[in-house]
Every structure is written in C-alpha cells, then in structure tokens.
Design a protein around this nucleic acid. Structure first.
Lengths: 207, 207
DNA sequence: TCATCCAGTTAACAACTGTTCTCCGTAATT
DNA sequence: AATTACGGAGAACAGTTGTTAACTGGATGA
C-alpha cells in the first residue's frame, strides 16, 4: 500500500517546497500579483524554466500556498473554539492565536494579504477554505449545551463572526510583532475584550 | 481670502485626478504593489514622465487614494453608528453600507485590498485613518445613554469592533456585487444578525 | 543492460519597466 | 511687453519580465 517515493519524486517535491518557501519569504514585502516567476526561481537558485515543472503560473503557486497556510491554521482554530466561553478560556484562546502568529507569521500575513488581494483564484481558494472552517466551527459550537434552541443559520452566523474575529486578531498581532511588550499587551487586552463581548452577545442571544 | 485657482493649477489638478481615477480602475484586478507608473499614464493618455509632476511613486499615489477612499467613507460611518441599536436601526445601517458599496465599489475594494497589502506606507495611512474613525465612533457611542458606566477603553474597544465589522460587511457586499439577488439578501441577513449579536453583547456588557 | 522518461538547464525572444535629461509651449508674474 | 515658472512631451538608458525551444544527464522500468 505505502509506495515509497522514488529518489526522483523526492527531489521534485523538495524543490517544489523550496519554491513555496522562497515565495512566502518574498511575499513579506509585496503582494502576490507583483510576485515574479523569475524572482522566485532566483531566490531558490534554480533556472526560471524549472518553475513550469511545478506550477502553471504564480497564481497557481498562490493557490498551493493557500492550502499550506490554512493547513497550519486548522488545528489552531479547532483548539480555540472548542471549549465554552469562560473568561479564562477566552484568555487562553487569545494566547493561542498570539502563539500561532509567532510560529507562522508568513502564513498569517499571506492569508490576511491575499484574502482580498488582486489574484482572483487565490481569493476564491481562501474564501472556500474559510467557509469550510466556519462549518467546522459551527459543528463545534453545536456540541455546546449553550447552543440549545439555536437555529442553524444563527450558529453559522456566529461561526463566521468567530472566524473573522480570529483573523482580525491574528493580523493585529502580526502588525505588533516587532513592537514593544506593552503594545503587544494592549493588543491582547483589546482582542480579549472583543471576544468577551461577542460571548456576552452569544449568551443573551435568545430571549 | 478665497484665491481663485489659475487656469494652470486647474489643469494640473484635473490630470492629477485623472491619474487617481485611472489607477483606481486598474486596481480592480491587481494590487498596488504591482501597479506600474507607465500603466497609469498610458490609461490617462499622458506621457510617463508627467507622472512625476504629481507623485513621487505609485506608493505615493496610493497614499493619496487612501485620503480619497476614506473621505467617501467618512459620512457613511457617521450615519451608521449615530443612532441607538434598535433592530430597525441596524437594518437601516446595513442598507447604508450596501448602498455605499454600490456607489463607491472601487474605493471599498481599494481599502479592503490595501489595508493588509504589500505597500507599507499605504498600510500605515489606512491604519491611521481607521484609528481616527474609531475615535470618532467612540465619541458618538459615548453620547448614547446606554454607554453610562462604560470605561473609555471599553468604548474604544467596541468602536473598533464596529469599524472592523463594517469593513467586513462592505467587503462581503462587494464580493456579492455581481451575484444573484438571493445571494445579496443572504449577505444582508448575515450582516444584520452579526450586528445584532454585537448589540446584544453591548447591552449586557455591564454586570 | 538498454531504452525511456523527465526535472532541470541554457539561450534567445519581444515586451515591458522606472528613471534621467533635454526640450517645448504657454500661463503667470513683473 | 519681457521674463520667468512649470506641466507636459520625447527619446534614450539599462534592467527586468514571461515564455518558447532544444538540450542534458541521471533515475526508472522492461
């Protein structure tokens, strides 16, 4: 069943990953729509034409990056929403987001930047994946006894609100990454209270 | 006091505005970081070198576009937040946002795209202006009797939440601009209920 | 062992980019 | 009426871009 990859396919995947990594690095100070194919291959140390062995275009590479970036986000979101919303749990969730931004800053930057960016297929890929995430969050919320009597539509509405709020918070942490410890603490306080307000709204939604 | 502009300065401002308009149009399907100086001048029908009479670079042009785009957003946000949050008021606010997106789609797209985009000075300009907006919203919220007993920090927190939620909603309407009437109605319902949940949270924030 | 495959290379193409310098015509100033 | 100020045009610069074509050499499968 487990067919060991030949040394050839291993090498191919290795350079493919190198292209993805290099692109992610270059995207720190520009958008995908201005990312050049040659720019990426030059950073990897490979001929420009080699690019075509892996991707049709930079937009195609962008779609691949969406998978990678949201793959790393996946477990984080799960952990964040799963427990009920006590104040302690919220504080922990915010810390989880902060930690994720520290661990994968380039992924977070890429998603925040290209979610509304200039490359349509990439926008669509992000939108699609985030919708799947919202569905997942909704399923998690449905387990909670607090969700008794909630309509499906309202659960999905809340799930989207959570997902958007997480991205906003992650983006805030990203901007404050090189800032002072006090500034980062300010962001933490802000995000925590916003999450708390949403929780209060959730608690009093019915009746 | 009112010094009438000479026919020369009038012409200059006219071509300057033409450059801004052309750029805004070209930015429908790309990001600012990939917008070329020649591309813009070609669209206006002017020599490439004329660009330098008005802007130092495309990033400089971007900052000018921030002023313009947020200028049009300014009265909209005011109207949206001013009244207390009855359900009817919320529905009206969402309609206001939808109307603004229809009236200035390019402005909304530009802000959503470049808020996290690849050009640092533009990001900073947007962040700065949005912070000023949040301050203004906070002042508006403070007038409301419902804000009695609220800390300044919490008021600002809520103001930011509102501003972000408005941008998210505007961006949703923008994506659904060419979609069916049912899809647009779905977006309206979603945005309305999210605003409502935030209002519920606001109402029960204290105690 | 031998023929095939295929990731990566080299070379060349026309088209495009931002920027500088020099010049022009005319509105503005004196 | 004479002079200056200045928005814009024109040409040229070196450097970049995406894409095609033909080629190489080592892993792969018969």
């Amino acid at each position: 069943m487990s067919h060991t990859l030949g040394i050839r396919q291993v090498q191919k995947q290795k350079t493919r990953q190198a292209l993805l990594d290099a692109a992610l690095g270059l995207l720190e100070e520009q958008s995908l729509s201005s990312l050049g194919l040659r720019e990426v291959t030059r950073a990897v140390g490979v001929a420009p034409t080699a690019f075509y062995r892996h991707f049709r275009s930079t937009a195609d590479l962008g779609v691949a990056l969406v998978e990678e970036a949201l793959g790393s986000l996946h477990p984080m979101i799960r952990q964040t929403v799963s427990p009920a919303d006590s104040d302690q749990r919220i504080a922990r969730a915010v810390q989880l987001i902060a930690h994720h931004v520290d661990a994968y800053p380039a992924h977070v930057r890429f998603l925040a930047r290209e979610r509304h960016g200039g490359v349509q297929p990439v926008r669509e890929a992000i939108r699609e994946q985030l919708a799947r995430f919202a569905e997942e969050v909704k399923a998690e919320l449905a387990k909670d006894p607090e969700s008794g009597g909630w309509h499906d539509d309202d659960l999905l509405m809340l799930a989207h609100l959570y997902v958007d709020q997480m991205l906003v918070t992650a983006s805030l942490f990203l901007e404050a990454q090189e800032a002072s410890a006090e500034e980062r603490e300010r962001v933490t306080q802000l995000a925590t209270r916003q999450m708390r307000l949403i929780s209060v709204g959730r608690r009093h939604w019915l009746g």
